Amino acid sequence: MRIKSIAVSAVALIAISCSTTISTANKEYKITKVSKFKSDWDFNSKEWLLQKDTLIGIGGPMHWGVIESKKQLPKNYEIDFKVNMIKESLFEVMLNIDKEKYIRAYLYQIDQNIVIGQGVYSKNSDEYGKRGGPTLFKKPMKLENNKWYAVKIRVANNQLYFSVNNETFLECSIVKSKLSPQGKLGFLTNGEAKIIDLKIKSLK
Rank of each mutant, 00 (worst) to 15 (best):
M1P: 04
R2H: 06
I6A: 10
I14A: 12
A25H: 15
A25T: 11
K30P: 02
V34C: 02
K38R: 15
S39L: 12
D42M: 15
E47W: 11
L49V: 10
D53S: 13
I56R: 00
G59P: 04
P61Q: 15
P61S: 14
H63I: 10
S69C: 14
Q72C: 14
M85T: 10
I86H: 00
D98Q: 13
K99Q: 13
A105C: 14
Y106I: 10
Y106T: 02
Q109S: 09
I110M: 12
D111S: 13
N113M: 07
I116H: 04
V120P: 05
Y121H: 10
S122N: 12
S125E: 09
E127F: 07
E127G: 15
K130Y: 00
G133I: 09
G133A: 01
K142W: 10
K142L: 05
N145Y: 06
N146W: 04
W148Q: 00
Y149C: 09
A150D: 11
V155K: 08
F162H: 00
V164E: 01
E171K: 12
I174W: 05
K176T: 06
G183W: 05
N190C: 11
N190M: 13
G191R: 04
K194L: 08
I196F: 01
I196R: 00
I200H: 00
K201S: 04
L203I: 08
